[in-house]
Every structure is written in C-alpha cells, then in structure tokens.
C-alpha cells in the first residue's frame, strides 16, 4: 500500500496509491495519509499538485483536514477551491471555527458550515446554542446539521459509513448534504419541533 507522501515523493503514481472502496463500485477512492511521517514531509505546493491530479480524475476531491491551524492545515487548504467548516454548537468549537474561517477568507475560499453533534433536546432547554445562533455568530452559509446520534459512533467504529445504509436515521441527512454540494436546493430538516409528538412527527418526515 502506498500513501500520500509516497505519491509526493514520486515513488508511485497517484492511481497506484488510491484505494478503491468496493462497496461504492468505482465511485469512491481513498488516498491514505502517511502514519509514520510528520506533516512537514509535504509542502503546500506538493499537496496542491496531488489534489489537482486527483481532481482530473474525480468529480469531487474531499480533503480531510487535521485539527489546528499549523502545517497540516496549510497543506490541506493549499489545493482546494472551497471549504466545509465543521463545528459543534459549543463555544470553544465556535471560537476555533471562527479563527479557521478567518484564515479561509484570507484565501478567498467559499465556505459552508456543517453543525455536528447537535442535541435538539438541549437546544430546546436553551442549554445548547441553536443552528441559527451558530450561523449568525460565524456568518456562514449552512450546508447541513447532524444531530448527536449513537448511530454514528457505532458505524464509525465498525468502519461502515452511514450513507451506505439507507435505513439509518442519519443517511438522509448525509444524502441531503451531498445533494447540496452538487448544487441542488434541498430544504433543511428542522430540529426545533418541540415536545415528544413533534419529535415523533419530525422523525416520520425525517430527511
């Protein structure tokens, strides 16, 4: 198996390093990061050229950026044309997201927001910031809201993407995010429906 650093160093071709996820036919490939190297092993220019190569072969290239705003972040944003900022509705996460958005805006990258781990119950009891609050603080366009659901923990640990399993509660939410990325106008699921019956109704029409 090859990794990103080996592609950069010219020790293999990009197509040799890409691992096809057979569950998705020929549609999804993964370029693994190097585990035994540090982030300085790649320059932003090198990273950018790998992303450009990948973009020639694929409709979408998603770059999973490391935490922080150091070298790994600078590499990850080097070759991209737009950014998705993921935050949780917690003040510390929002402050970090705000700082990251500032850095992305400096590069004139269009930004959209995913609010992750929302707990609708806590929003209702005003123990958690709402989607509107977060969007207002960060003044960014919303791409999606993902509730804090135990499905994610379980599926992630097992290496099974939720998006593969249409019966999962959250599958429709990721599907909608994907459609929005493709440019479709998709209405947002509301997480504000109050009370048990509201929730039940919300679940029934979920998606």
């Amino acid at each position: 198996m090859f990794d990103l650093v080996e592609v950069v160093e010219g020790r293999c071709q990009l197509r040799q390093a890409l691992i096809k996820d057979k569950r998705f036919g020929d549609c999804l490939s993964i370029l693994p990061a190097a585990q035994t190297r540090d982030k300085d092993a790649v320059t932003p220019e090198q990273f950018s050229s790998v992303v450009a190569q990948a973009a020639e072969q694929c409709d979408f290239v998603l770059v999973d950026c490391p935490a922080g705003i150091e070298g790994g972040f600078r590499n990850a944003i080097a070759g991209v044309g737009e950014a998705i900022v993921v935050t949780t509705p917690e003040v510390s996460a929002i402050r970090d997201a705000d700082r990251v958005i500032g850095k992305l805006v400096e590069r004139a990258l269009p930004i959209r927001l995913i609010i992750n781990r929302l707990r609708p119950e806590m929003v209702r009891t005003q123990d958690m910031l709402s989607v509107d609050d977060v969007c207002e603080i960060l003044s960014a366009e919303l791409l999606g809201v993902i509730p804090d659901d135990e499905e994610i923990i379980d599926m992630t640990n097992r290496g099974e993407p939720i998006a593969l399993n249409p019966s999962m509660r959250l599958a429709t939410i990721y599907d909608k995010i994907a459609r929005r990325l493709e440019g479709e106008l998709v209405p947002f699921t509301s997480f504000d429906s109050p009370g048990f019956f509201g929730r039940l109704f919300g679940a029934l029409k979920a998606g």
């Binding site: 300085d40 935490a67 070298g71 790994g72 923990i153 640990n157 290496g159």
Partner: peptide, 28 residues
C-alpha cells in the same frame, strides 16, 4: 496541549515531566 503532533504539541510537551492522555472510546 493543542491537537496534533506538530509544533504546538512539541511546545506543550517541552516543559512537562508527566503526561495525561485523553481518549474517547472511538477507534480513530
């Protein structure tokens, strides 16, 4: 310490003599 294993991590560790590592029960 900040997340990651870059310079921020090195700065955080340099003066310490002990470490507490925080882990959530997730494979990643």
């Amino acid at each position: 310490s900040p997340a990651g294993i870059e310079q921020g991590f090195k700065n955080a560790v340099i003066g310490a003599s002990e470490a507490i590592v925080v882990c959530t029960p997730e494979v990643s």
